[in-house]
Simulated scan of single mutants.
Amino acid sequence: MAFDARDKEISTDDYVRYVDTGTIGKVLDIKTEDEVGWVLIDKTNLWYKSKLVEVLDEKDIKVKFTPTGRELDIEDLKEKAANMENMQMDSNVAEGGG
Rank of each mutant, 00 (worst) to 15 (best):
M1T: 10
M1I: 09
M1S: 12
M1N: 13
A2R: 02
F3W: 08
F3L: 11
D4T: 00
A5G: 05
R6M: 06
R6S: 07
D7V: 02
K8N: 06
E9I: 10
I10R: 07
S11Y: 13
T12C: 13
D14Y: 14
D14G: 14
D14Q: 11
R17H: 02
R17G: 01
Y18K: 10
V19E: 15
D20T: 14
D20P: 11
T21P: 09
T23N: 10
I24T: 14
K26T: 00
L28V: 03
L28M: 02
L28D: 04
D29H: 08
D29M: 09
I30C: 12
I30H: 04
K31P: 00
E33N: 08
E33D: 13
D34I: 05
D34A: 12
V36L: 10
G37A: 04
W38R: 10
V39Y: 06
V39L: 07
D42T: 00
T44M: 04
T44N: 05
T44S: 07
T44L: 13
T44K: 03
N45R: 11
N45Y: 03
L46G: 01
Y48H: 15
K49F: 15
K49E: 15
S50E: 00
L52M: 09
L52Q: 11
V53Y: 04
V55P: 02
V55T: 10
L56C: 05
D57Y: 04
E58L: 01
E58Y: 00
D60P: 03
D60R: 01
T66V: 02
P67R: 07
T68M: 02
G69V: 04
E71C: 00
E71F: 06
D73W: 02
D73Q: 05
D73H: 04
I74Y: 10
E75M: 15
E75R: 14
D76G: 13
D76Q: 15
L77S: 13
K78F: 14
K78A: 15
K78G: 13
E79I: 10
K80A: 15
K80I: 03
A81S: 06
N83M: 00
N83Y: 05
E85Y: 08
M87W: 02
M87A: 09
Q88F: 05
S91Q: 06
N92I: 05
N92W: 08
G96L: 14
G96A: 14
G97R: 14
G97M: 11
G97D: 14
G98F: 15
G98D: 15
